[in-house]
């Protein structure tokens, strides 16, 4: 990733992205607290947080999906740069556009799929058997939110890099 990062500066994450990063951090420590609390309480007596495995699964969705828009803004996606190290700035900008186009295809399909999955989970009103009977749609909803913000940021980056290519900066 090194070279392109030097050439194409990261974009400034917007407020929503910073907010989502913070939520993701809370979810991350939430997982650690839930598991540790139950390990300790189970060791002493009985686990006190019901459905801990199911809760951790829901939190995993937030931990993984919520920072995706921000890392896209900061150009933190991992790629193979062995074959393209020698390119000049213009060549690298063209590659960045290719990157965004391929990313947009993937993210568009993923967002479409996620939206379908969310509405299906809502319409069936399915839930995870347990003490809390956690509705399935919650996790799918969070998943979709993460992807939509990711897609939105990717589109902004594509426009931004395309303009800068046209300007020939």
């Amino acid at each position: 990733m090194g070279n392109i990062e030097l050439n194409l500066p990261p974009a400034q994450p917007n407020r929503a992205e910073l907010f989502m990063l913070n939520i993701s951090v809370i979810a991350f420590y939430g997982m650690a607290i839930i598991v540790t609390t139950n390990v300790i309480s189970r060791w002493i007596g009985r686990p006190i947080i019901p459905d801990d495995i199911l809760l951790v699964q829901e939190l995993m969705v937030i931990v993984i999906m919520f920072p995706l828009a921000l890392i896209t803004a900061c150009r933190l996606h991992i790629s193979v740069d062995v074959f393209t190290e020698g390119l000049d700035k213009k060549g690298k900008k063209i590659l960045a556009l290719l990157e965004h186009s391929v990313g947009l295809i993937f993210l568009f399909l993923l967002a479409w799929a996620a939206t379908n999955g969310m509405s299906k989970a809502w319409s069936t009103q399915e839930y995870y058997s347990g003490v809390l009977d956690i509705p399935v749609w919650i996790g799918h909803f969070l998943f979709t939110i993460g992807i939509l913000f990711f897609l939105f940021r990717l589109a902004i980056m594509a426009v931004y890099d395309f303009r800068s290519l046209l300007r020939g900066v």
């Binding site: 699964q57 799929a113 379908n116 998943f143």
Partner: peptide
């Protein structure tokens, strides 16, 4: 699309993989 959603979501929505971020 169903398969993409199902498998992408099932991968993220995973208890055993919580080990990695932790």
């Amino acid at each position: 699309l169903q398969l993409i959603e199902t498998n992408a979501y099932a991968f993220v929505h995973s208890y055993p993989l919580s080990m990695i971020p932790l």
